[in-house]
Every structure is written in C-alpha cells, then in structure tokens.
Write a protein that binds this DNA or RNA. Sequence first.
DNA 1: CCGGGATTGTCAATCTGGCGACATTTCAGG
DNA 2: CCTGAAATGTCGCCAGATTGACAATCCCGG
Lengths: 222, 222
Amino acid sequence: MSSIDHALLESDSWFGAVPAERRALLLAQASVRSVAAGTRLYGVGDPPDGLWAVLDGQVRLIGYPAVGAELVVLMMGPGTWFGELSTLDAGPRPHDAVAFGPARVLHIGIEAFRRLAGATPELWWDIALLACAHQRASLAFMMNTLSQPIPVRLARTLAGLARAAGGTSIELRQEDIAAMIGVSRQTLNKALKAMEREGVIAVEYARIKVVDADGLRRLGTG
Amino acid sequence: MSSIDHALLESDSWFGAVPAERRALLLAQASVRSVAAGTRLYGVGDPPDGLWAVLDGQVRLIGYPAVGAELVVLMMGPGTWFGELSTLDAGPRPHDAVAFGPARVLHIGIEAFRRLAGATPELWWDIALLACAHQRASLAFMMNTLSQPIPVRLARTLAGLARAAGGTSIELRQEDIAAMIGVSRQTLNKALKAMEREGVIAVEYARIKVVDADGLRRLGTG
DNA sequence: CCGGGATTGTCAATCTGGCGACATTTCAGG
DNA sequence: CCTGAAATGTCGCCAGATTGACAATCCCGG
C-alpha cells in the first residue's frame, strides 16, 4: 500500500473533499492493480464490482451506441475516481472501463465497500456526491458536443484531455480523438492542422502538445 | 392536497420504489402549483430550490450549448420527478426547467426537504437513487444521439416520448422533436414521413400517433 | 540499421443535412 | 363560417462531412 500517492489522490476535487478519516477507511480497503494496456476493468452490463481510481496511466470509459461503433464517454487520468454509479444503485455497468496503455489502478471491491459503508453510512453520501459530479460532467459533455461547431468541440475536448493527463501532452491517436468528438479521422486532421497553424497546439505522432493553453480556452469559448 | 393523484405518482419507477412512509413525508411537504405555458420553474445557475414532480402537462429540461442555441435535455410527463441533482450536492442548476403548455407541478422547497431529511436521512438515499436513474438516462441519451443515424434516433426518441406521455399520442410540434434530436425541422419532417410510409406512426397536426409500437422498437434497434 | 505495421497527411467524389423560400393545411377565435 | 396565425410539406441550393484511396512518415522489434 505504500505505493499509493496520497498527494495525488487528494488533488482530486471529489476525493480531496472527503473527510480524511473516511479517505483512510477507503484506502485501507483498496488494492493496487497494475494492468496491461487494453485491460478491461469492467464491461457494459457487468454487475457492480466496486469503486476504482486511476493511479498511473489513463482509463477510458467507453460506450457502445451501436454494434461496431464506440464512443469514448470519458477519459480519466491519475487521481480520478470512477465506478460509483453501479456501486450506488446496484445496477449494471453502463459502459466499459478500459486501460489505455499500461496503468496502475486502485480498486475497492463491492463487498468491501458495502461492509465499510455499513459501519460508516457517510460513505454512501460521499459517493453520491461523486455521482453528482459525474452527472454534471455528463451534462457539460452533452452541451459541448451537441450542436457545437467542430473547432469549438475540439478545443474543449483537448483542454479536458490535457487536464486529465495532468500536463500539456495528450497521448492519443487522432482516430481516438475523432471518435470522442464524433467526426471522421480526416475531418479531425484538418481541424487539428488549422489549430496548429494558429500556434495553439503542436501535432506530433500519436500525440498532441498544447502550446498555448490560454489560446485553447479562448477557442473553446467561441 | 387532495388534488394529488397518488396512483399516478406511484407509477413512477423511482417514486414507486420509495417506501410508503417516506413517500407520505415528501407529499406532506409538497405544494401544488398550476403554472402557465412557458413558465420557467428554475433556470441555469440558480441555487437549489428543492424537488419537483410533474402532475399534469409536460416539463422540459433545457440546456444552452451556446448563445442562441437550445438543447432539450429531457422531456418529462406526469409522474416524473426531477431537480434532485442540485438538491443533493447544493450546486447550481445545470439547466432550465420550463413548463411546456399549462402544467401542474409538485414542489418541495429546499429548506423543507433539508428539514425532512434531517429527521429522516434515508431521504438522502432515496434522491441519490433518483440521481442514479437520471445519470443512466443521460448516458443512454448520449448513446442515442451521438453517432446514430437519424431514423434510429427518431425511433428511440418517439418511443421514449410515447412512454413519457403514457399512451400512443405524442403532442409535440415537429419543430420541438427536431430540437430534441438535433436536426432541422425539414430534415425531421422527411424522416417522419418515411416512418409514416412504413406504417409505424401517423403524422398529424402538432401530434404524432404511434401505430405500431413494436415496429418503433425494431427501428430503434438498428 | 532496417523492414513492416501503424499512424498521419491529403485529395477527389459523394452524400447528407442545414437553410431559405413558399405553398398548403390546420386550428382557434370572433 | 371566416380569417389570420401557426404548423406542416416540399423545393433547390450549398456548405461541410464522410468515404475510399494512397502516399508519406513514424516507431518498434529483430
């Protein structure tokens, strides 16, 4: 357990707001898993298996709007907690959680969580607030994506990805970014190139570097 | 208070699952409001003002993706509860709630709810489950809308509207339905006509009648 | 250091949906 | 029953996105 970076976890706006004694309860029950690239932590329809957090690497939440189609619902970087919805309402998982690249994750099994929450019901309250935060993020995502011109969607998505990655380097194929904002790879490439010409980002191989974060925010307010 | 239709409210999958004694607590604090068409019950950014339910008519949740643009997030018919997100996390309203047509709504003020929940903390649990249900609905909506061909989105939306209306008659202008699935009125009209030719629906003036509910489901599974 | 698979850059052809315009139909109110 | 406002049905045109194709570039493993 000594490998858990407490400062990182507390930097998360949700976990950081959970009182320290309950944070300790959760962490005491958590196990660290190192997973290979592409590992599916859970899948659509699975029964609840507890709470997760990203320690290193990135985890994607992926939905399936239709057979053969994928939609990246959310991309999560270190410090982010997820999996609270099924933990709360005991319903099936609404999406896949897949490790993008090798990752280290924190896992609290559903039985362990229920045991904890049985003794400390405030934990239910805590993850309800996590659910609220994710609900707001979902709504914001819908607003971002629907009926917005592509450059704006792209700017907002990149800003979010950069924040999730905790830096200025976004390690994603253009194809993945295209899927996130719902356009073809070719169209995305054109938009990226246009943004690069404005000096806001630098397009590299399987990577986008944010050169001018303020410029990105400005483009996202169009 | 005698004008509250208990059978209607209990038919809601969330409220119906709340234990009867807590349902009674909530209803005892609720006031009935009759509002004119277009009344805004609350708006984006407002502080929390409690829980609501639709008794008669319809209420739309509307977001604003950009200046001048509207997005109907959710359309709610009689029996539906809403407003739990801000009630739970005390954050600002993420969208407007607007009465479509004259409506009767149930309202439990935020102070009243907090007083109730102070004495009966299980109420927090209850509305957390409501939040979960809405989160799942949001995710489903995202799957429906993003990267789905128009006929599929239309079929799913109509199926949902028919269910919300509690029958086979959907009383909406084509312009409103178009806004819900994010297309122009003209495009929607074309899709409606195509669906009518397949014998699944009947298009009337400011109204859609579902003729073949099974056929609608089939089209929504494309 | 070199070859092959993966990723990106770019083009032309095609298609889809948005938009403006306008005729037609329906409804409500005098 | 008549009239005007609201809603629907249908054009054609156009901007922009998709698709398929292919060359160029990059990275990794042997």
